[in-house]
C-alpha cells in the first residue's frame, strides 16, 4: 500500500478524531462550568449527587464509561444499536467525563479568588452576574489556564479510545492498516498527526497565557 493512500485514509480518520475533539470541548466546557457551580451549591441535594458524579467520572476508566454508554440503550430498553449510534455514544461519554474534570478545575479556580474581590464588588453595587462575569471569571480564566491546557492535550490523545466501540477515527484506521500491512508506518504517521496537533494546541494556549500575563494576581 502506498504511503499516499495511507496518508489519505489516516487524514479521513483524523477528521473524525477532530470531530470528537472539538465537539467534546464545545459541550464539556460549559457543562463543566454548570457542574462546578452545582458542586459549590449550598444545597446538599444539589451538591451531593454532583460530588458523586464527579468521583464516578474520575474514579473509573474512560474506556469503561465509553463502552457502558454505548451498550446502555440495549441493556436498558433492548434497542438494537445502529451504527450511527457509535458517534453519539463517543460524544456523550467524552462530554460527561471531561465535564467532570473541567468542573474540578473551574471550582478550584473560582475558590482561589480572594473573598475581598467579591466584597469590593458588593460594596460598589455590582449585581451577582456582573461580579461573576466581569470580575471573578477573568481572574479564574487566568488562574486555570495551565490546568486546562493539560486537560485538552490529554483529550487529543484520549480521542483514540473511541476504537473501543469500533468508532472509525484515526487510531482505529491506523491499527487496521498496521494489521494488514505488517509494518508500523501507519502507526508512526498517526503518532505524528497527534504530536503535531498537540504541538499546535500547546502553542495556542501558550499565546493565551502570554496575553493574560499583562497583570499579576
Amino acid at each position: 500500500m502506498e504511503i499516499s493512500s495511507i496518508l489519505l485514509q489516516l487524514l479521513g480518520g483524523f477528521g473524525k478524531s477532530m470531530g470528537i475533539y472539538f465537539l467534546t470541548l464545545l459541550f464539556s466546557l460549559p457543562l463543566g462550568m454548570l457542574v462546578a457551580l452545582g458542586r459549590m451549591s449550598k444545597k446538599p441535594l444539589v451538591r451531593g449527587p454532583i460530588i458523586f458524579y464527579i468521583s464516578l467520572m474520575r474514579g473509573t476508566p474512560l474506556m469503561l464509561q465509553l463502552i457502558f454508554v454505548y451498550y446502555m440503550p440495549y441493556a436498558l430498553f433492548g434497542w438494537t444499536l445502529s451504527p450511527g449510534w457509535r458517534f453519539y455514544a463517543v460524544i456523550i461519554a467524552f462530554v460527561i467525563n471531561y465535564a467532570a474534570y473541567f468542573a474540578e478545575i473551574f471550582r478550584s479556580g473560582i475558590q482561589s479568588v480572594p473573598t475581598g474581590q467579591y466584597e469590593a464588588a458588593d460594596v460598589l453595587g455590582y449585581s451577582r452576574r456582573q461580579t461573576f462575569m466581569g470580575i471573578i471569571l477573568p481572574q479564574v480564566i487566568k488562574r486555570i489556564l495551565p490546568s486546562v491546557t493539560n486537560e485538552i492535550i490529554t483529550l487529543v490523545k484520549d480521542t483514540s479510545l473511541a476504537f473501543a466501540i469500533a468508532y472509525v477515527e484515526m487510531f482505529t484506521i491506523a491499527k487496521q492498516i498496521v494489521a494488514r500491512e505488517s509494518n508500523l508506518v501507519a502507526l508512526i504517521v498517526a503518532g505524528l498527526f497527534y504530536y503535531v496537533f498537540n504541538y499546535a494546541v500547546a502553542a495556542v494556549m501558550n499565546r493565551f497565557e502570554k496575553k493574560l500575563s499583562y497583570y499579576k494576581i
Binding site: 475581598g116 474581590q117 466584597e119 469590593a120 460594596v123 470580575i135 481572574q139 497583570y215 499579576k216 494576581i217
Partner: peptide, 14 residues
C-alpha cells in the same frame, strides 16, 4: 450611599 476602603485595597487586578 456609602463606600468602603479595605485594609488590603481589594483592587481588581485585571
Amino acid at each position: 450611599r456609602f463606600g468602603l476602603v479595605f485594609q488590603n485595597f481589594n483592587l481588581f487586578p485585571h
